[in-house]
Amino acid sequence: MDKPATRDAALLFLRAVLGFVFIAHGWQKIAIDGMDETIGAFSAMHVPQPKLSAYITMVAELACGGLLVVGFLTTIAAAVLTLVMAGALYFVHLDSGVFVGTGGFEYVLVLIAALIMVIVFGSGRVSIDGALTR
C-alpha cells in the first residue's frame, strides 16, 4: 500500500472507532440509562447546568459520532467532541487520578488525543468530505 492509501485507511479506522464509541455513549444516555438518570448523574458529579449539559452531551455524542463515521464535517464534529471531552475531563475526571477504574482521566485523555488527530489530519479520502473536495 502506498502512504496516502495507508493514511486514508488509518483515518477511516480511527473515525469509525471514535464515531462508534461516541454513538454508543450518546445512545446510553438517551435509551439505556434515560435522560432523567443521566441528568441526575451529571448533577451528582457537579456538572454545571446538569440538564442542559446532559442534553448537549447526548446530542453531540450521537450527531458528531455519526458525522465522524461517515466523514462529513469531520473536523467540526471532532472539535465539538473535543470540547465535550474537555468539559468531562475538567468537571468529572481530573480530580480522580489517572486510571479509569477509579474514575480517572486516562480514557478521556486518549479520546481527546484521537480527536485532535482527526482535527489535524482531516477525514481522509474515504469520506464524504474527501469526496466533496475532489
Rank of each mutant, 00 (worst) to 15 (best):
D2R: 12
D2A: 11
P4S: 07
P4Q: 06
T6C: 09
R7K: 13
R7V: 09
R7F: 03
D8R: 01
A9K: 02
A10N: 05
L11M: 07
L12F: 12
F13H: 01
F13I: 11
L14K: 02
L14A: 09
A16E: 03
V17N: 02
L18I: 04
F20T: 13
F20K: 11
F22P: 00
F22W: 14
H25G: 07
G26N: 02
G26Q: 05
Q28I: 07
Q28C: 05
Q28P: 04
K29V: 02
K29M: 13
K29Y: 05
I30H: 05
A31E: 02
A31L: 15
I32L: 05
I32Y: 01
G34D: 07
M35T: 07
D36L: 03
D36I: 00
E37C: 00
E37P: 00
G40A: 12
A41P: 05
A41V: 08
F42W: 06
F42N: 10
F42Y: 15
A44V: 01
M45E: 04
H46F: 13
V47Y: 06
V47I: 14
P48I: 10
P48K: 15
P48D: 10
P50T: 08
P50M: 11
K51A: 15
K51C: 01
L52Y: 12
S53P: 04
S53M: 11
T57G: 13
T57V: 11
M58N: 11
M58G: 06
V59Y: 13
V59M: 10
V59H: 03
V59E: 02
A60V: 09
E61H: 13
E61W: 12
C64H: 04
G65K: 11
L67W: 10
L68M: 09
L68A: 04
L68Y: 03
V70Q: 07
G71P: 02
G71E: 06
F72K: 05
F72M: 06
L73V: 03
L73N: 07
T74S: 06
T74N: 06
T75W: 08
T75P: 06
A78R: 03
T82H: 07
T82Y: 03
L83F: 14
V84Q: 08
V84Y: 05
V84N: 09
M85T: 08
M85W: 13
M85A: 13
A88G: 10
L89M: 15
L89D: 09
Y90R: 14
V92C: 12
H93R: 09
H93T: 15
H93Y: 10
L94D: 08
D95T: 11
D95S: 15
G97N: 14
F99D: 08
F99S: 13
V100I: 14
V100A: 14
G101L: 14
G101S: 13
T102D: 15
G104D: 15
E106N: 14
V108P: 02
V108K: 01
V110K: 15
I112P: 04
I112M: 13
A113C: 12
A114M: 12
L115F: 05
L115C: 03
I116N: 08
M117Q: 08
V118K: 06
V118N: 05
V120K: 00
F121A: 09
F121P: 01
F121R: 04
G122C: 08
S123K: 00
S123E: 00
G124M: 01
R125N: 01
R125E: 00
V126F: 13
S127F: 00
I128P: 02
I128T: 03
I128V: 14
D129R: 00
D129F: 00
L132F: 08
T133D: 06
R134F: 02
